[in-house]
Design a protein around this nucleic acid. Sequence first.
DNA 1: TTCATACTTCGACCCTAGTCGAAACATTCA
DNA 2: TGAATGTTTCGACTAGGGTCGAAGTATGAA
Lengths: 229, 229
Amino acid sequence: MKEGPDIAQVATLIGDPARANMLTALMSGKALTVSELAQEAGVTIQTASSHLSKLDAGGLLRPRKQGRHKYFSLASDEVAHVLEGLMGLAVGAGHLRKRTGPKDAELRRARVCYNHLAGDMGTQMFDSLIAQGHLVLEGADLALTQSGLAFVSDFEIDAEALQRARAPLCRECLDWSERRSHLAGSLGRAFLTRFEDLTWAKRDQKTRIVSFSDPGAVAFHRLFPVAHP
Amino acid sequence: MKEGPDIAQVATLIGDPARANMLTALMSGKALTVSELAQEAGVTIQTASSHLSKLDAGGLLRPRKQGRHKYFSLASDEVAHVLEGLMGLAVGAGHLRKRTGPKDAELRRARVCYNHLAGDMGTQMFDSLIAQGHLVLEGADLALTQSGLAFVSDFEIDAEALQRARAPLCRECLDWSERRSHLAGSLGRAFLTRFEDLTWAKRDQKTRIVSFSDPGAVAFHRLFPVAHP
DNA sequence: TTCATACTTCGACCCTAGTCGAAACATTCA
DNA sequence: TGAATGTTTCGACTAGGGTCGAAGTATGAA
């Protein structure tokens, strides 16, 4: 009956298993080529190409051509956010791909959500920033306080430069494993990058797992203490 | 490659146009029947029933059976949140839905629902009983508290006798004009009977309208005060 | 009881959309 | 230039699922 800009088109796009696998792989934040995504999805390159052009036409991807390679990444934080939300619903429905394995535990502890830190440690960081008064919830929005600005500067992140960019500095992202919020936005990205620069943590290329070194984890917990660990 | 929850299943669920229309209609927060949702989606009732059972199995809906009606609402805020995100991704504006319900103002105000009071005054009574602590929600069930028992006894209703009968004492009933809960069960029936005995109200046999006398309405509102009338 | 309403299940039709092989197109390198 | 690699397009096949008619079940009304 009523037609229009419906959520069905976008959801159908995400709904195909091959495309969902591709999008999940892109949640690592890395840009991947057609061949790589074909392997992730378990289909041939021709099929993958077809899927990717559809995802691109649907505005979910950002393609970048480099020589004879074509790199795809998620179009925006909003896309990643929706995907994370869908994962939460899938977990709630009990539709896990496989039973909880060792990799699953690592994923729950710390993983990459598009380009920022998610999992148990992600929510810990978020909670700690809130508890210390560095971050405040202003209605639906998230804002960095004065003390938060100083805290971030001490950690050698140039928040003011990030603020000048048009991308939102702080955003809340709902965690599918923890069902709680963690920090997204350009600040969330900056934190993860900083962790890597300090060699506190390392991203696994194949999975979305973020593995902290022992001294890195200690430093992390010193920086982001929580009341009841 | 196959880590994390399977977003494809839930996305496929949302991806069908008919189901997407249903979910969009439910974004109003109201509970809708199978027939209503069928009309919203532009499909037959059989098709709608099939879709709704799938959405339910996927954990996206919360069904409530009410006599020969079956009301569906979104399962949680998380579902609504994801749908909102999908709408954001879909280019273009959303569409407004037409409203449903009885047109007659008298029916909206007070009417008989099976054997108990429904309509605006019915939900007022329910809300007031909850607010005064006479009634509590215990999970999915509704229970009369100690103070509620005294309150009912003061109103000369023998709740203990009703409790001995096999019919449930308290039941939640979803209002078809207010789309909110009111009191059903044998206690709900007893309340309405008592209103009639006290000549506070009179029920019209043909139209289901319950008409309160002026002093009856005053007494009713004194007995069941609400915070924001 | 009998009828009416609301919903579910069954069966069959049909059509979209995912899939891959083959081949064309594009880019880099020797 | 030609060979190698990466990606896209075309065509045909096919499975899965959305659709509705008809029959079946459940609840309420007369």
